[in-house]
Design a protein around this nucleic acid. Structure first.
Lengths: 255, 255
DNA sequence: AAGTGGTCTAGACCACCAC
DNA sequence: TGGTGGTCTAGACCACTTG
């Protein structure tokens, strides 16, 4: 007999009930938490009460509380870290993948604290899929660099970069915790002129989710970019896996 | 005593268990369904068995089955429709928001069946936020068009378009179920030269989720675009709400 | 009317993290 | 060691869609 649901609408001060049917409780709860974020009672990177505390506080179950939290996560207003808890998402970083500006520069300029970790830097053999994208011969040599980047201490993207060794011989001797583009420009005089950027929203799955320390299935944005110089020579293929709430893509097109 | 979990790993023929700990059952289930999609046993737009049937088939509960389905939805491999069931997502449509090509044209070219519905077309007063973006005077007149677009009968995006009446006087007399850009070009000789595109992944919430007939919280991609002519005159502001699994953004940048 | 997903309850054990 | 989220069970009623 205690399976009654609802009856909590009275408590929802929300005004946007343009719908005809009752607002489910998890959406009411979502709105209440969202209001606390909007008013600044909960500020960026601050931690929410535990799921058990929330469900008790709002007299519901963990499942329902998690539904509300999941909504806010999907909207990019909350994120979770490992098994540590739920946190308020900071502002999205504005990012233009068609420009070769340094991550460090634009994050700093927008008030964030950037950090880059190099996870791997090796030389390997061009696999089929990359041969097709780059035009390089299958089996020839290519440099592979894998990195993880942070903003304000939170890992928000991991990337795989594949660089044509013909244009940057000996590249692997350098330190990649800095801007790769600056390095290529200053040390090799490489300039990029033709970029093809592809991106789509998708869930982060096993390898990348693990690297970023998030649950598999966490919403992400996949971005890749093929760069060539003015003669059409392949320079690099870069693929990035971003947490979906961390960025806002901004592209200018002229002509 | 019957609360034992797991023990189903034996049934998972999956080979990517590079992790050290046991793969949760909902991920095993996700992989099994994904395999059926990959092999074509389940083809685009075909419907899956009901959640109850699935949970019985795989000897688990609806909650766990829904977790697996939710994963595939987040990856863009499945979508749901109202209370009708779960369906296999078709290929993503490749879309370049920096080009003024017609939706109808590029969807058709990629083998899809496009359809456009005009939900509203009215003249209204420029609100503050739009005045800031466009440079138009607050309170002056602007045309507003709201549309919903389909691919293969599935509603995949809704958009709000705001057009400067100074460059397209009398625009509202036309039919907007066709390409707006073609219309502007042919009838008014308008050509776009400067476009600023902004986009980020987020959940679809109340107004847009309702228009597209999906549950609030469904993953989406928000895209907006401000277009000006070669003299810098504001032409249109367009904002689009896409289902996240429906598209793949592709942008070329030269120079 | 029957079946679907949508919402919700009231618990449980597990794996990991911080103290 | 205690608390957190992660996973899972076994049910329930509701709202909507379809025949």
């Amino acid at each position: 007999m205690s399976t009654s649901q609802g009856q909590r609408d009275a408590a929802s001060a929300s005004a946007d009930d343009t719908e005809n049917s009752r607002t489910p409780f998890y959406l009411q709860l979502r709105d209440r938490i969202a209001a606390q974020i909007a008013t600044g009672q909960l500020s960026a990177h601050s931690r929410l009460p535990s799921e058990r505390t929330l469900s008790e506080q709002y007299q519901t179950t963990r499942v329902t509380a998690r539904l509300a939290l999941g909504q806010l996560e999907a909207e990019g207003k909350l994120y979770r870290s490992n098994r540590r808890g739920w946190f308020v998402s900071p502002e999205r970083i504005i990012y233009d993948p068609s420009l070769d500006v340094s991550f460090t520069d634009y994050v700093t300029k927008q008030g964030g604290v950037p950090r880059t970790e190099t996870l791997q830097s090796t030389s390997l053999t061009v696999p089929v899929w990359l041969a097709q994208k780059s035009g390089l011969e299958e089996g020839s040599e290519i440099y592979h660099i894998q990195r993880r980047r942070y903003i304000d201490g939170r890992a928000i993207l991991t990337e795989n970069i594949y660089v044509n060794p013909a244009v940057c011989p000996g590249l692997l001797r350098f330190d990649f915790n800095q801007s790769l583009w600056k390095l290529m420009r200053h040390e090799y005089g490489v300039s990029l002129s033709d970029k093809h950027v592809t991106m789509y929203p998708t869930a982060l799955t096993d390898p990348q989710a693990g690297i970023l320390g998030v649950t598999p299935g966490t919403a992400g944005l996949y971005v890749n970019r093929i760069s060539r110089n003015s003669e059409g020579v392949f320079i690099e293929f870069d693929e990035e896996f971003w947490l979906h709430d961390a960025l806002c893509i901004s592209v200018h097109a002229k002509g």
